[in-house]
Design a protein around this nucleic acid. Structure first.
Lengths: 196, 196
DNA sequence: AAAAAATGAATGATCATTCATTCAGGAGGA
DNA sequence: TCCTCCTGAATGAATGATCATTCATTTTTT
């Protein structure tokens, strides 16, 4: 049906946009480049999205949505908070490593200065944050994690550590596998830097 | 002398640029806005800087230079690696809290997608990274820090945690003092999330 | 009165967006 | 089967707005 085809193309355009925006960022990327990446004409983009900004926001929601869906499916398979945390970090790194353009896209969009974009991006992003905090709070309840450390502050450390690791990997052209960095990062987060 | 005056104005323009760029980011900010912030005419900017990009890069080096100078003066006053690490985090938070436009500026510029800007920014940034890694390596030597955690990976966790905390404070409009977050963050980094 | 600095209107380039035009393919008729 | 006609989708050249940058002119300094 025509409806299905349209939806396919809508998704294809969003995925082309992720790729195109990930090269040099949103501002430096022209709609013409997105159109070429998607294999359509400039004007066609406007049959599917209202504006460049609309396309960015929808594309961001699309990729975060995918990641959250994947995460939810994965997390139920683990029981302890520590295992869940481990899985979050591993999955984050795996997904970014499998699709470097997604990694670049996220890196740039997370620090989008434009307020209306920031605003639109806040909700999907905080759905990710909330999932991390949930795991930390669960650890507080089970006694696996120290209750003296607030869930929000810990989430910032975890997310910041993951994000900085991905950033180094994707910009500073680190050669080695991103997935290999999950173990050490988890160890540092769980047990800290200090010797006993 | 004319020389001194020129230098004063050069610095004033860089500081105006930091302020102007911090509002909506580099791309959305016009040279006219920078000029108005600095109290000069558009054309005057080009008597002091080659281009908008040149101004951004020089301004970034300027602020990082200031921060490094301050950091070096402070760090010599502490002996143990843990105290030094504590001071790094405190200072970072204090500086950003004292000058929110600096915080915004750094947040945006750290994720600049433009490759020539990234390239120009790399060196001053890694001078910061190296200072953090030095402290970690010192801790390895004294036995205060676990040697099994690589200095580079730990630096990413520390820097990422600080950066994410500043980011949350300056974008998500967290009300409470940034400086207050230094203690808990250090605790988490040193002793980890896991209960004993 | 030179020289040096500063000015800001004008220039030219770069896109996001629009819209008059073209195209593709399905319905129906012979 | 072949031939219109019709409709919604797609096209891409043209438009208009937005700046970074320049430079002829003015102001300030020496």
């Amino acid at each position: 049906m025509a409806q299905e085809k349209k939806e396919k193309r809508r998704v294809a355009i969003m995925e082309a946009a992720v790729k195109a925006f990930s090269q040099l960022g949103y501002h430096a990327c022209t709609m013409n480049q997105v159109a070429r990446e998607a294999g359509v004409a400039d004007g066609t983009l406007y049959l599917y999205f209202e504006s460049k900004e609309d396309l960015l926001i929808k594309a961001f929601k699309h990729v975060i949505g995918n990641l959250m869906e994947l995460l939810d499916k994965e997390l139920v398979q683990f029981n302890t908070p520590a295992d869940k945390l481990k899985r979050i970090i591993e999955l984050h790194f795996q997904v970014m490593e499998n699709d470097p353009s997604l990694a670049g896209f996220m890196q740039f969009q997370l620090r989008q200065p434009d307020p209306s974009i920031r605003q639109a991006i806040r909700r999907p992003l905080s759905s990710y944050a909330r999932r991390i905090e949930k795991v930390i709070e669960e650890g507080h309840k089970t006694g696996d994690f120290r209750a003296s450390l607030g869930a929000r502050a810990m989430r910032r450390l975890i997310f910041g550590g993951m994000d900085e690791t991905v950033s180094a990997w994707c910009f500073r052209g680190e050669k080695d596998s991103l997935a290999d960095k999950a173990g050490p990062l988890l160890d540092a987060i769980l047990h800290g830097l200090a010797a006993k």
